[in-house]
Computed example of a mutant assay.
Amino acid sequence: MTDVLILGGTGWLSGRIARRWLLSGATVTCLARGGRPAPEGVTLVIGDRDDPAAFDIVARRDWDHVVDVSSRADHVRTAVAALGSRAGRWTYVSSMSVYADDATADADESAPLHAAAQPGAEYEYGAEKVAAEEAVATLGDRVLIVRPGLIVGDGDPSDRFGYWAAAFLRDGDGTVLLPDTRGRTTQVIDVDDLADFIVSTGATGVVNAIGDRHPLGEVIERMRTVAAHRGDTRAADDDWLRAHDVEYWMGDRSLPLWLPAEMTGFMTRSNARYRAGGGELRDLDETIARVVADENERGVERPRRAGLTRADELELLARLG
């Protein structure tokens, strides 16, 4: 039986990974702070990774597989120091945000990275992930570094992909504001496909875990169809949206998934190594259907971490004329 230690295991992605390991027949232990419930069937060890003694209990034994999803390089370095000699295999979930080049299409895992974060420097997500990768890479050929792109699915706490489901659901017969999608693409990976890959693959090294490319306009329209939106849409160009303080990609007062025209490589990266490592991609319509149902269940008027409120959207549409 495979003994797995997940550093985390109570979050959205790490919880999915823990449940997938359980389904495979593994015994699963999660080390987490305890603020959220652990999946049923796992052993939860309470530990705060800011505490130097956090790994004392789990470092007393060997593990077939350690999985870490942390976005703090200091936490990853400490984990590697405490557990590296105890792990038969180590998977680190990084991010495509490590890449410094967002312009080159079809870039693979050899593309240039941001400079690694230095201890004490101001926090930058991409740089922290690079520094964390460097720490994990010291463990040699038993390491898999997974670089996901945008992870999507039901329960997504980032609210990015789901924004479009919520916008079409809440507006019903009303008009939905869109960005200019001409020439724009998007790549996403379903959270369950990513969890399956991490548990089942034998790949090592670095792997871009991302789906196939789709025209952004097509994906938004597919979301609209599943949400049964009956109203119109209005598109505004990049300059107009920026002039009216609408943000790209994520965050408050944003249009998620919309990217600057010059970022031609951000959503066109190669997933060849993911495919070669046995990574599968479910039909995007299946993911969209789950996301639409989830947004309906969670409430389309709830506070969100990304997107426009309906009030902001109506104001912008009135200005657009």
Rank of each mutant, 00 (worst) to 15 (best):
F55E: 01
A81V: 13
T268K: 04
A53G: 11
A107T: 05
A227P: 00
D68Q: 00
D154Q: 03
L150E: 03
V80C: 04
R77W: 08
R49Y: 05
P37Y: 10
E280H: 09
A121K: 11
A103I: 02
V226D: 00
G140R: 06
S71P: 01
P303W: 11
A235V: 02
T104H: 05
P215M: 06
G35K: 13
V80M: 05
A195W: 00
D239N: 10
V246L: 10
S270H: 08
L316Y: 03
S254N: 11
D193V: 07
R61T: 15
R298W: 05
G140L: 12
E40D: 14
H229Y: 08
Y163P: 00
T268S: 14
S110Y: 06
A117G: 09
R230G: 08
M267W: 04
R234D: 00
D141T: 14
R290M: 07
R142C: 12
W249V: 14
L216C: 04
I210R: 01
L284W: 12
L22C: 03
E247M: 13
P303F: 07
V67E: 01
L257G: 01
H244S: 01
A82F: 10
D212M: 07
R86L: 07
G126V: 02
W164R: 03
G321N: 11
E280M: 12
G231Y: 15
G278Q: 05
R230E: 15
L284P: 01
D102I: 07
A54G: 02
A261P: 07
M96L: 14
G41L: 09
V300F: 09
P215H: 14
I220Y: 03
L316P: 00
I210L: 14
R20Q: 09
M1Q: 10
P260T: 04
L259Q: 14
V4L: 12
S110T: 15
L177K: 11
D102R: 07
A132M: 10
V58Q: 03
V143K: 07
V80H: 03
A311N: 01
G172T: 08
L144P: 00
R184F: 01
R160M: 08
A243K: 13
P39Q: 09
A73D: 14
R242M: 14
T29Y: 00
L255T: 02
A87M: 12
I46H: 08
G279D: 06
P148L: 08
G211P: 13
R242V: 12
E247V: 11
G25R: 06
Y163N: 05
R19K: 13
A228N: 10
F266M: 08
D62W: 04
E128V: 03
L22T: 01
L281K: 08
E122P: 10
F161W: 04
A165C: 05
L44M: 12
S85H: 15
R275T: 12
A236G: 13
E221Y: 01
L13T: 07
I288M: 03
E122R: 14
M263I: 00
L22E: 03
R282Q: 13
G174Q: 03
T309W: 03
E313C: 05
V4W: 07
T233A: 05
